[in-house]
């Protein structure tokens, strides 16, 4: 059952597809959205850069380096991307 509006769904899909390309062993259902992402998934700085490059290519979002520290959990990331993309905040 999925109650999410299309926009949020598409965003989640884009994020998980990008993550999957870098860490294919990760199952989105097993990730906790409130726990630091880089603790749950072994992402080094190159993986992280490639992840953000993937989001840049897929969503057209450019995340300044100074904002990296704001993006700790998946919740942080979704809120940040929604704000950047001008979507209304949605319940996840």
């Amino acid at each position: 059952m999925n109650m999410l509006p299309d926009g949020a769904d598409a965003l989640r899909k884009a994020v998980f597809d990008t993550l999957h390309r870098i860490a294919p062993e990760v199952l989105p259902d097993e990730l906790e959205s409130g726990v630091p992402l880089r603790d749950q998934v072994d992402l080094d700085s190159m993986d992280w850069l490639n992840f953000l490059l993937g989001l840049h290519a897929g969503l057209g979002v450019d995340i300044p380096e100074a904002d990296y520290m704001k993006l700790v959990t998946l919740d942080d990331l979704f809120s940040y991307l929604e704000a950047k993309l001008g979507q209304s905040s949605v319940r996840r």
Binding site: M46, L49, L53, D62
Partner: peptide, 12 residues
């Protein structure tokens, strides 16, 4: 700072 992500460097 101020560079698009495609132009940023890692310390490596």
């Amino acid at each position: 700072e101020g560079r698009a992500i495609t132009g940023r460097l890692l310390m490596a």
